[in-house]
Design a protein around this nucleic acid. Structure first.
Lengths: 146, 146
DNA sequence: GGCATATAGTTAGTTATGCAACTAATTTCA
DNA sequence: TGAAATTAGTTGCATAACTAACTATATGCC
């Protein structure tokens, strides 16, 4: 087996198991230490709604790279916590618009600060050019496979 | 809010949601299409055992970046599928050595080929220097947070 | 108009993850 | 030697992921 094939296997395990979960775990831990009951998955949905409120579930699928059942249940849980509401679209009755509650609006600055602190900590010693390379590689990989 | 903070938030969502899951999904799909019943998580455990057989569960935790309960249950499922066996260590009775069965040995070349094909497809148009940058950034992020 | 097709969302079933609390075996050290 | 601390692994609980199959609404086309 050619040597460079195993190198790609190693890259695979790096991508899937290491840095991303380390960041996710740390951010989750920081939420918990701050007394915030939300998961990072829930936060990632709120993050997109803070940028643009009242998106359809399908649009949240596209923006968070999740499938429809995953979004359905994330919205279920966010609704239980009274952070979002499903509002039926008037123009298309198949569509639910997912809208933030006041409680979710209030969470924004607190969690964004924690996320930024976490990313700052994660990216110590990483220069901006390398971050751009990572983003470009990931976009390319995503485009190659979808 | 300074602009560069949101940029880091975007990087966070890129790392967690996009390229890694795209690779994982594609590899899982390729396993399924080849009639292989294993999950990518199970494969990632086997991958380390193919490199070095009969590791302790703790060592598999370290190498796959998972916690102990996750490894316990992955090994449970791999044992049900008769791909590994737990063998109590003679020198330390707390330790289970996780060893490959013949069936798992036979899976190696087939799945490694699929993984390599998948990575080749994922990495079309990505040059080697950029892959090295990604690996270094991820290692750095991991080291920063652990 | 009406049937085929596509789209939005839900539900069921299996696997996986993280945390906390637990048992059992080993090591440390007073 | 023997109690305290550490290490390896398991179990219970909640959340989340993917697939497949499902309902309901909307669109396309004859």
């Amino acid at each position: 087996m050619p040597n460079n094939q195993f190198k790609r296997g190693e890259l695979y395990s790096v991508i899937n198991g290491m840095a991303s979960t380390a960041v996710a775990r740390r951010l989750q831990k920081n939420f918990r230490m701050a007394g915030l009951e939300i998961t990072i998955e829930q936060w990632s949905v709120l993050y997109h709604l803070w940028k643009e409120d009242c998106l359809s579930q399908q649009e949240l699928c596209n923006r968070t790279f999740r499938d429809k059942p995953s979004i359905t249940r994330l919205i279920d849980n966010l609704e239980k916590q009274k952070l979002v509401r499903r509002i039926p679209s008037k123009s298309d009755r198949r569509i639910n618009l997912v809208c933030l509650t006041d409680a979710a609006q209030a969470l924004q600055s607190q969690t964004i600060d924690l996320a930024n602190q976490t990313m700052n900590e994660a990216l110590i010693g990483v220069n901006k050019e390398d971050i751009e390379v990572v983003k470009q590689v990931f976009q390319r990989v995503y485009d190659n496979l979808t």
